[in-house]
């Protein structure tokens, strides 16, 4: 099991990245907080070995993304109240508009756009992460970009 100091370091290093990704994937602050919190607890308990910080980052992001996907699957079966979260998280309206537009997209497009444009992962890496082919990811990125552009114009 990892020490609390190690977790503190990991929170400082990757906390913002994980939180941001979870918020954008889930569109819900409370669920995002749960996902991030559980990710770190899993990390503490498993204490997986890593060769470098990239591995560590990838592992944390993957665990968090899988938790988000579980939550999204849960939502498919249960009606949950939509929540507007960005007003409280992002103060300036310009940034808020584009993120609101992103949040309006269906899950499958929002997730690949977040991972690619915000977290900086390559198509092949996202394919491995979400269990789709690289071609499918490319298609989602392409269509997601188009949808985002349309949604942003409306905003």
């Amino acid at each position: 099991m990892l020490s609390c100091d190690a977790i503190r370091d990991a929170v400082e290093e990757y906390g913002d990245m994980l939180y941001r990704t979870c918020v954008l994937m889930l569109g819900n602050v409370h669920d995002a907080e749960d996902a991030v919190q559980e990710t770190y607890i899993t990390y503490m308990r498993k204490a997986p070995p890593f060769s470098d910080s990239e591995h560590e980052k990838a592992w944390l992001l993957t665990v968090a993304a899988n938790k988000c996907r579980d939550m999204l699957r849960y939502r498919k079966r249960h009606i949950t109240e939509p929540e507007s979260v960005l007003d409280t998280l992002v103060q300036d309206s310009e940034s808020s508009y584009i993120l609101e537009a992103l949040m309006m997209l269906p899950d499958k497009f929002r997730i690949v756009l977040t991972l690619h444009y915000i977290d900086g992962y390559k198509v092949e890496e996202i394919a491995g992460m979400i269990g789709k082919s690289a071609s499918a990811v490319k298609m989602r990125l392409q269509k997601g970009r188009k949808l985002l552009k349309e949604a942003y114009r409306k905003e």
């Binding site: 977790i7 919190q37 770190y40 503490m44 985002l148």
Partner: peptide, 22 residues
């Protein structure tokens, strides 16, 4: 999009909750 997203940061109380639980 990336720059807008970077404005989302982890709240301090969440950090504290995680560390308390650990």
């Amino acid at each position: 999009l990336r720059k807008a997203a970077e404005k989302i940061t982890m709240p301090d109380d969440l950090k504290n909750r995680i560390l308390d639980q650990c």
